[in-house]
Design a protein around this nucleic acid. Sequence first.
RNA 1: GGGGAAGUCGCAUAGUGGCAAUUGCAACAGACUGUAAAUCUGUCCUCUUCGGAGUUCGGUGGUUCGAGUCCACCCUUCCCCA
Length: 375
Amino acid sequence: MYKLEATSKDCKAKAGEITTGHGIIKTPIFMPVGTVGSVKGIGVKELNEEINAQIILGNTYHLYLRPGLDIIHQAGGIQKFNAWNKPMLTDSGGFQVYSLGKIRKITENGCTFQSHIDGSRHEFTPEKVMDIQRTIGADIIMAFDECTPYPCDYKYASNSLNMTLKWLDRCFNRFNSTTPLYGYDQMLFPIVQGSVYEDLRKKCCNEVIKYNAQGYAIGGLSVGEPAEDMYRIIDVCTDILPKDRPCYLMGVGTPENILEAIERGIDMFDCVMPTRNGRNAMLFTWEGTMNMRNQKWASDFSPIDENGTASVDKLYTKAYLRHLFVAKELLAMEIASIHNLAFYLDLVKNAREHILQGDFKQWKQSVIGKISRKL
RNA sequence: GGGGAAGUCGCAUAGUGGCAAUUGCAACAGACUGUAAAUCUGUCCUCUUCGGAGUUCGGUGGUUCGAGUCCACCCUUCCCCA
């Protein structure tokens, strides 16, 4: 259930609340990605106390392969299994239709994957993906879609969209004819596709709103298209999608992308960037990004991030963090991941405050130049 | 003192007549967007208008159209025997 609390006076930016069986999510929100049920390198304690995460992601394809549905079911659902015990969202495997391009085959019925772990073959259909997500037990589950690549010619995008819409209908049929397994409700979000083509996106938005879903997602962006295309498509979609439902922009993005998308009416984000780039020594800050492997930090004994909200930001110095990365210490990746996620959550928290104040766009203008530069 | 082995771009390695010269590490930089990523890419003798140009393989001579590679001597290091 979503409650729209405010819309910024100077743009489409929304602030709201999503109520789930595991608690309330204040939007706009960034959701750390925990593909296999774990946010890489980070424990629940840090997610709660350092990062202030409100909801995390899991992935249907990955959890289905490992540990498998039987284990998750025995555990009593994913939030019992991973000890997070707060809101979760599972992606459907639609992204793997894209990212596992070479080891999957799209069929009329669904999609056949070859496991990236052992090569075994598995077929995902919309029905099966609903059943799996019922078993995993996330509060928000996603429709099974094809995330189209970029570039993508019009004909492919159009055909793919038609298939995704057929799959969506089958998803809702199965979703509506089954019940949650663990005593709390699940919400199914449709995913808008249509590549960078405005007419396809409009068509898709008009189709998905017929399901009167609890929330909607925009997929198929941040796959290599120019940022301007992404912003243009978001605008087209959020003009059609209902304002009184949360809108989730899948897989986005950089801090700049997130602010631009919030301005255009997006409520929810997820992205591997803060964790993956963190593991690869890149830090995001209000002042810009830093490559912590760079020689220039070798004897910089200032705190990692003076403006950071996580305790690691002031506890450790840049020079020490660089040393840890150069020495390939695990701690480096943990510190960077905590820092980046805390920054992302701080970013959306600040955005929310300015939406509530009504000056989001003005505030965004004042920070966007800084956060994008390289230090 | 006698016998044997070896010296290659930071380190370690390849190379047995066509070589600016293999590979690994280190170093330096870049990428990463619903995670097949603690990963991947590039640079790594000097200069460059990025087309090339110039100097290189312990040293000095020599053989050869051509030498890191073959020959002679010298220097250095390691191993074995005294």
